[in-house]
Design a protein around this nucleic acid. Structure first.
Lengths: 230, 230
DNA sequence: TAGGAATGTATACCAGGTGCAGAAATCTAC
DNA sequence: GTAGATTTCTGCACCTGGTATACATTCCTA
């Protein structure tokens, strides 16, 4: 993966700037060019109304090249969320000692709310709002998001297996529970912000909901569904 | 929606047999014909290797008609699971008095294991095994299944809202938890049966896993992730 | 500055899915 | 029965997402 194997000088100023070479830079540039052209067109005309041929033309790239960078049309939109796929697993792996995985994930989610992290749904920047509106307005895009959710679950389950003593079944179930609760909270925040509420206005309720929801997962549903009194 | 508005005789033996009319019967027949032709071809050659044109030909129907009955190629396979989409919601709505939703769902799942209900993954009939193998071998089909999962969650959340006093957030989180645990258990059973284990051989472990997993949801993850002893 | 590797392009192609106009079948009314 | 309204089916052309092939371009290396 490294570009210079020995003492060679791949680019003129490589050793100085430590840049990844012209080829890599160009690749990165075309990739972002394609993505930005796509999202701009999608936001203006809608996901279904824009064809990949138009995107390729706007990005000044052939259709074949576009599909060399993004495997599907949906990925043009959703790839930005892909970075977050292994985030829960990473949080669990890097949690401070004497901290349980649920505690670490709750703390991380609350921190995300504080930072208005888009992944928590609590971000009202127009561009982000438009993008999430785009995603949640298209079933095919929602399907893609679900795939990331599944990937998050699997990665988290592995992290739980690697860093705790719980059996595999418990790890899988716990991973599903923890990802599900985050997803539910994010969806709620998306819905609020999407319907016009500002992130700051939503914040207190978002924190309260997050604490209640994580509490539900940690302490169980039994407490919530108390059997009817006699 | 009713076919005979007054005292007319739309079909020859309608009033006697109360059949839904020739047109409806034919529709139902062609629908099943298409579905069975599709699944037979998929099982023989694989999902990607069979085109909808071939299916239409096998079912002696035009391609256009095929898409009048099934909106996508994937639906040809997964529509059979669609009936189960609202099953958890129904179980909760029809639960006996003095029973909590989690208890009702656990009992229903355990009963499904006992009955070797395919939805629990604990069914080793060759046809069912082949079908599930087909679904879990195709990412696009998995995506479709995820959509059913989302539908189940929403329906269950509504059922919880309608039949209990819990707030909306709790209902949504609980629904996500309960569907997630069922999905995890079913996936595990699918994996075991798919790798050759018989349903009878898997049954005891499946029951034990189900009880443990539902217990985890009802009593919370905190008990599973006990902080490291001092 | 030449050669090799990676990348990009043009073209043709396949398959899923839709729109449309007309044929065929079913239902309803006489 | 039969005429006509209605629904369903069909064949066809068409669009779009995605891929294969074969060739041109660009960048890296030496």
């Amino acid at each position: 993966m490294q570009k210079s194997t020995k003492c060679s000088a791949p680019g003129i100023v490589d050793a100085v700037t430590d840049q990844p070479g012209l080829r890599e830079r160009k690749k990165q540039r075309t990739r972002t060019a394609i993505s930005e052209a796509a999202i701009a067109l999608f936001l203006e005309h809608g996901f279904a109304e824009v064809s990949v041929a138009q995107i390729a033309e706007a990005a000044e790239v052939s259709k074949r090249t576009l599909f060399a960078y993004f495997t599907t049309k949906e990925d043009l939109v959703v790839h930005r969320m892909a970075d977050h796929e292994t985030e829960p697993a990473r949080v669990v792996r890097e949690r401070p000692p004497h901290t349980t995985p649920p505690d670490a994930l709750r703390a991380h989610f609350l921190d995300g709310l504080r930072r208005r992290d888009p992944i928590t749904g609590l971000c009202d920047h127009p561009a982000i709002r438009a993008l999430t509106g785009l995603i949640f307005g298209n079933p095919t895009l929602i399907d893609r998001m679900q795939r990331f959710k599944v990937g998050s679950e699997q990665a988290l389950a592995e992290a739980l297996c690697d860093t705790t003593e719980v059996p595999g079944l418990v790890a899988r179930v716990a991973a599903a529970q923890l990802i599900a609760v985050q997803w539910t909270l994010s969806s709620d925040n998306f819905a609020c912000v999407g319907s016009g509420q500002s992130a700051d206005a939503r914040y207190p309720d978002a924190v309260r909901d997050a604490e209640r929801a994580f509490g539900l997962v940690e302490n169980g549903l039994a407490a919530a569904f108390t059997p009817p009194p006699a």
